[in-house]
């Protein structure tokens, strides 16, 4: 196929003269065929998605992960910090005794045994087979019991109307939401936006995403090498997010 053909097709299209359904630029090729996209899934228990966050590489002044999440998922607020949602936040720590400081992002920890899922009356709060914890907003009634139950303050209630939601991330007033581990990216073989931004925008490489069940994955190798911490490990919830350096 030649460049000329493409350019002709492009011109025709821009001029709006092409027949819309099934423009034939070459025999046997239908251009408009969204329904033919490959089916993927279901999410499988063979995978267990998780994060490793190295607070030594994280800087108190950097919020690239938060910005990236906002942009990706569209949870920009209305300048009402108490009721605006925050799926991911930077927490700065200072040791009471020694004065040592650390900084790290906190988001949904995607627990193996999530209390938010236990307490949800309708089953809207749910964990996928691959360990990603989500809110099924189709059946969320907005009772906020999950927010009471989460030890990480990971969830937000949508306190006001939302417009121009992303197509992959429907959000609506009166329901609860939280970090999805960028499930839409993960299902397409990608990495979460925060992790990407930490490497590409911030250049810090403080976040690693991967399959905790795959011993060959980068994250598993790192976890096997160094002792890491999980937040509120005493609760036995087995979060999918690990921290090092705290």
């Amino acid at each position: 196929m030649s460049d000329t053909t493409f350019n002709a097709a492009r011109r025709r299209l821009l001029a709006g003269t092409a027949a819309l359904a099934g423009i034939s630029v070459a025999p046997g090729i239908r251009l408009i065929s969204t329904a033919e996209a490959a089916v993927s899934g279901p999410a499988s228990a063979k995978n267990r998605w998780g994060l490793l966050i190295d607070s030594n590489k994280c800087d108190a002044g950097c919020t690239e992960c938060v910005t990236a999440c906002k942009t990706e998922q569209g949870w920009t607020g209305n300048d009402r910090p108490e009721s605006d949602p925050q799926w991911i936040r930077k927490v700065n720590l200072k040791d009471n005794k020694t004065g040592a400081t650390a900084s790290l992002p906190v988001m949904c920890q995607h627990c193996e045994h999530p209390p938010c899922v236990d307490v949800c009356p309708t089953g809207a709060s749910m964990k996928r087979e691959d360990g990603i914890v989500l809110v099924d907003k189709h059946i969320c009634i907005g009772c906020r019991y999950c927010m009471m139950a989460c030890p990480y303050k990971a969830r937000s209630f949508v306190h006001e109307d939302v417009h121009n939601q992303k197509q992959h991330m429907p959000r609506g007033k009166g329901t609860v939401e939280s970090c999805t581990l960028c499930v839409h990216r993960v299902d397409a073989g990608g990495t979460p936006a925060c992790v990407e931004a930490c490497t590409e925008k911030a250049g810090r490489d403080a976040m690693v995403f991967g399959d905790l069940n795959d011993p060959a994955s980068e994250i598993s190798k790192k976890l096997a090498k160094h002792v890491t911490t999980r937040l509120r490990a005493d609760l036995g919830l087995e979060p999918g997010v690990h921290y090092s350096g705290i």
């Binding site: 720590l93 200072k94 509120r232």
Partner: peptide, 16 residues
């Protein structure tokens, strides 16, 4: 406040 990091002074944009 939730005790996510016992033993540390914490601060964040989310009222930790």
């Amino acid at each position: 406040p939730l005790s996510i990091f016992p033993g540390y002074e914490v601060s964040s944009s989310f009222y930790d």
